[in-house]
Simulated assay, not measured.
Amino acid sequence: MKKLFIHKHDFLLILLGTTLISLGIQWFMAPIGLVAGGISGLGIVIQKVTNGLIPIAVTNLVCNIPLFIISIKQRGFEFVKKSLYAVLLTSIMLAIIACFNNPFLELHDILITALFGGSLIGIGIGFVLRSGATTGGTDMLAAIIKFRRAKFPIPKLMLSIDAIIIIIGMFTFGQRPAMYAIISVLISTKSISMILEGGYRAKAVFIITTKGEEIANAIGKNIHRGSTQFKGRGTFSKDIKEVIFTVISEKQVPQLKQLIKTVDAKAFVTIADVREVVGEGFVKENALL
């Protein structure tokens, strides 16, 4: 029986994620026919053509069952265990939320609906992925195809499958909703990245100077950040200089630039964006849960 259970933290992440996904689908996407790919998108189409006889929750569950059976045969139960929780919880939450009145039903701005729906779904998927699970559907189908046909890349497979579903949605709801569904997909993708990368923007700074020790000490004393020092040699001048590497938050950039100018006005400084920071001094700042 232990094989059926997952860690409490992972379960809470999946529960939170699937709730947000379900809210995005039921309150924003489904009411105006925004088919943004995936099994849920197919569910929106089926719910429409059957006049609500087959709800999205049923389509989500039924379509995923054969995918899980195949995946278990290919890779074993441990590979899909967390995803099984995600699919079951998604179907349950879709059914529960469908029972409540939609507070956004009178929102007739399709762009705002696409933006909020895509954001909720993207954030929800991000939380599910952080738990180590997937929401099944197109990504699992892509993994199955990849297992049998290794030459096909998963991202292109997922894109192709979602594109087919979006086209089906276009013939069902029209071109305008399909166009906005694509906007929703882009917003959803960006939201997923934000959650997976921690949503924390930092800056990597390289400082080439002759006063490495003084600048490193000043960074530690005034900005309270650690740094790494190493030697470098100029390609043309052949001069040996010190290179300092540090990572700081965006709001600390002006302070660091002024500090460097005070210590060594001739220092050469480069500042680059950092998409994710993991390690001492940044872990607590980045933690979402």
Rank of each mutant, 00 (worst) to 15 (best):
M1V: 14
L20P: 07
L23C: 14
G24H: 02
A30G: 05
P31F: 05
G38Y: 08
L42D: 06
N51E: 13
P55D: 12
I56Q: 02
L61A: 14
N64W: 11
L67W: 09
I70E: 00
I72D: 00
K73Q: 02
G76V: 06
G76Q: 08
G76C: 09
G76I: 06
K82C: 02
K82H: 01
K82N: 06
L84V: 10
Y85Q: 10
S91E: 02
I96G: 01
C99G: 00
L107V: 11
L111N: 00
T113W: 04
T113S: 12
A114G: 14
V128C: 04
F152P: 05
P153S: 06
S160V: 08
A163H: 01
I168V: 15
G169M: 09
G169R: 02
Q175K: 12
P177S: 02
A178N: 10
A178L: 07
M179C: 03
T189Q: 08
S191T: 05
A202F: 06
K203W: 01
E213N: 08
E214N: 10
A218H: 09
G226L: 07
S227C: 13
G232V: 14
T235C: 09
I240M: 13
E242D: 15
E242I: 07
V243M: 06
E250T: 14
Q252I: 08
L256R: 06
K257P: 07
L259P: 01
L259W: 03
A265Q: 09
F268G: 07
I271N: 05
V274T: 15
G281M: 03
